[in-house]
Design a protein around this nucleic acid. Structure first.
Lengths: 182, 182
DNA sequence: ACCTGAACACCGTTCAAGT
DNA sequence: ACCTGAACACCGTTCAAGT
């Protein structure tokens, strides 16, 4: 790739992170291009869809969540690893306003654009859940996708209105109580 | 109201129900007007916003959910009333594709356009929850809005992809397990 | 009093021309 | 090889003219 093209791609990612952070993932793509100082066509050349831009922004974080799962499983008891990891997933799905919806689609539809990156999370979720199941601390009918769907649902609720951190914590707690067996 | 105006309003509601059902709540309003055989201006005259149209369509159903809460509380033990009512709320939030998002805003923001109709549900949820709390079958820190937020989150997950009824039932079951105390 | 639909605005997306 | 931005398409919303 030519040096100026690479620089443009990086500037676009920086601008997108900034714009998505300030105005949500549905902000105008013209806005993103303008902030990066490039034409709208350049944005489309590098990132043919809004989801492609999102995938580039979230991909590394999803890998981080995979690594977090490994670390938690190595150092914490399974129930605690599950709890901590789910909290991190909820926070991740709140990175940008509106991103929970894209992640939900990615979780449930493996062929979607975010589906590839989400596969990392599905696998991590499955491992965390499997460990909890082996330890007998989780209801046996729960599936990994269930965790991710509920975590995303909570994140989506939180981003959708004046839903403060205390409520988020309580919702996660309710979810965990529902998953874990006494 | 003039007879033709009333007839137009009714035709618009019928067309909106049909169009929202087939294509989701984000279908073009031109589409709704066309199906009703009226100009787009007439749609805007009767229903100044998409949310106003939704409110007219969902208002009666929300009253029905309030009545269902009363009936369940009169005939069922509190834990069962809570379970049944939550299931009905999830189904209600799946009436049209995309409606869970509008209802979530209505639940959490009382000043929103759907907030008025949602007040009925907030009150019904509070009564169902209060009965369960008096019976000591529910965790004491749960709030009525928590129920509605989680139910909406499940409905939203369900409408967002190939999330079948078995998964929906399991998600509701996890939610209930998290709410109820043994 | 109500209805109509042309007109305007806004944004997503493409592509011919330029460097 | 890449960039630009004008051009086109689509849809939401308003409002002057008509009935």
């Amino acid at each position: 790739m030519r040096a100026d093209a690479r620089r443009n791609a990086e500037r676009l990612l920086g601008s997108a992170h900034e714009a998505f952070g300030e105005r949500g993932v549905h902000t105008s793509l013209e806005d993103v291009a303008r902030r990066a100082g490039v034409g709208i066509g350049t944005l489309y050349r590098h990132f043919p869809t809004r989801e492609a831009l999102l995938e580039a922004l979230l991909g590394q974080r999803m890998l981080d969540l995979g690594a977090l799962a490994e670390r938690l499983l190595a150092t914490e008891p399974p129930a605690r690893a599950l709890a901590e990891w789910l909290r991190a997933v909820v926070q991740h799905s709140m990175t940008y306003h509106g991103v929970a919806a894209s992640l939900m689609v990615g979780m449930l539809d493996e062929t979607s654009e975010l589906g590839v990156s989400c596969a990392v999370m599905r696998r991590a979720g499955a491992e965390v859940l499997a460990a909890a199941r082996r330890a007998g601390v989780v209801r046996p009918d729960a599936e990994a996708v269930d965790l991710l769907v509920l975590a995303n649902g909570i994140a989506w609720a939180a981003e959708n209105s004046s839903c403060g951190q205390p409520r988020i914590d309580r919702l996660v707690s309710i979810l965990l109580t529902g998953l874990l067996v006494a």
